[in-house]
């Protein structure tokens, strides 16, 4: 019965690239920047964690869907406050998708002594850059 336990199964390791960010930390740029910031960082971190392309696509789709939801809210409401709130809420939802896909892989990377990298710089860049991008797009699309 131990034959399968005692036969080799270790796969070729990819050379470790850049260390990943802690998926939990992406909550800050997701909260302040919105769904596109969360998805951008999620996809970049997914590449660092060597996730399969289908998972990366799922994160990207979640980000676009979140932004789509914001546009819909903007089209059917008055004032800027509901749109802002929708940005926060959808940002957090995208973060939950990222978290669900990356928590396990991140733990394994940490077990191999790989990561976490500092998210402060990229986090601010994503929150401000994607936040502004969303604001401009909303202005063009809805107002």
């Amino acid at each position: 019965m131990h034959d399968d336990l005692f036969s080799p199964t270790i796969r070729e390791q990819r050379a470790p690239g850049r260390p990943p960010w802690r998926p939990e930390s992406i909550v800050y740029p997701a909260f302040f920047g919105g769904p596109l910031a969360a998805a951008t960082l999620g996809v970049l971190n997914g590449r660092r964690l060597a996730l399969p392309t289908s998972r990366l696509l799922l994160i990207a789709v979640a980000g676009l869907a979140g932004f789509g939801a914001r546009v819909v809210v903007g089209a059917f409401s008055d004032g800027s406050s509901p749109v802002r709130l929708a940005g926060t809420a959808t940002g957090l939802l995208v973060w939950l998708v990222v978290l669900a896909l990356q928590r396990g892989p991140f733990r394994l990377a940490a077990l191999r002594g790989h990561g976490p990298a500092r998210l402060i710089g990229p986090g601010f860049a994503a929150a401000i850059g994607c936040g502004l991008l969303e604001a401009v797009l909303l202005l063009v699309l809805v107002r």
Binding site: F6, S7, P8, T9, I10, R11, E12, Q13, P16
Partner: peptide, 12 residues
């Protein structure tokens, strides 16, 4: 050293 396949052979 990150040579996991070699390590596996040695352990086996």
């Amino acid at each position: 050293a990150g040579r996991d396949q070699v390590a596996e052979r040695v352990f086996l």
